[in-house]
């Protein structure tokens, strides 16, 4: 029997529609966000975004110490030069590098005609470029922190 309906005509006051029971969900093979690269890039994007946000709050406050006194600023910024914070800066740069590159990927998915089709490939490009940046940055930063 076809769906029975009374339309919202001037005469009728109620509408009845019979809708088939929804099918049980099967895990779809490929959507942009569920499972696989699309989801993990989103999870990482969110986590790195939150981490950078909280760093920025602290960072604006520590920079504000230049208005207090040279001594106050130098003492607090001295904490950034310890080995543990040096590793923290590495993590921060890694987080920002990923968020920035993946952010560009998101923008391409949204605005580039064939972006959605290539989102997976672009995720691996993001990881590749990220790796190159980190390989360039890490040794130099570690020398600055641990060396002389």
């Amino acid at each position: 029997m076809p769906a029975k309906a009374s339309g919202a005509g001037a005469m009728s006051s109620s509408a009845t529609i019979e809708v088939p029971v929804p099918r049980r969900s099967v895990i779809p093979g490929g959507t942009l966000y569920r499972g696989n690269e699309g989801m993990w890039s989103w999870v990482l994007h969110r986590i790195t975004g939150v981490a950078i946000y909280f760093f920025l709050l602290v960072h604006i406050l520590d920079t504000a110490l230049v208005r207090v006194s040279p001594e106050a600023y130098n003492i607090v910024i001295g904490a950034y030069k310890t080995p543990i914070m040096g590793l923290g800066e590495l993590a921060l740069v890694g987080a920002i590098g990923f968020h920035a590159l993946n952010g560009l990927r998101i923008i391409l998915v949204d605005f580039w005609g064939v972006g959605t089709r290539h989102q997976k490939a672009m995720f691996y490009v993001v990881l590749g470029v990220w790796l190159v940046l980190m390989i360039g940055f890490t040794p130099r930063h570690l020398i600055n922190v641990f060396g002389g």
Binding site: I77, K81, G86, G103, L104, I106, I107, H141, N144
Partner: peptide, 27 residues
């Protein structure tokens, strides 16, 4: 986001990569 890529990479390049990196930063 697009503008921040340029600004943040420039900020980190000057403050963390050029010269002596973090150890040069003081008042």
């Amino acid at each position: 986001g697009v503008l921040l890529v340029v600004l943040i990479f420039g900020h980190l390049f000057v403050n963390l990569f050029l010269g002596d990196g973090v150890s040069q930063i003081d008042f």
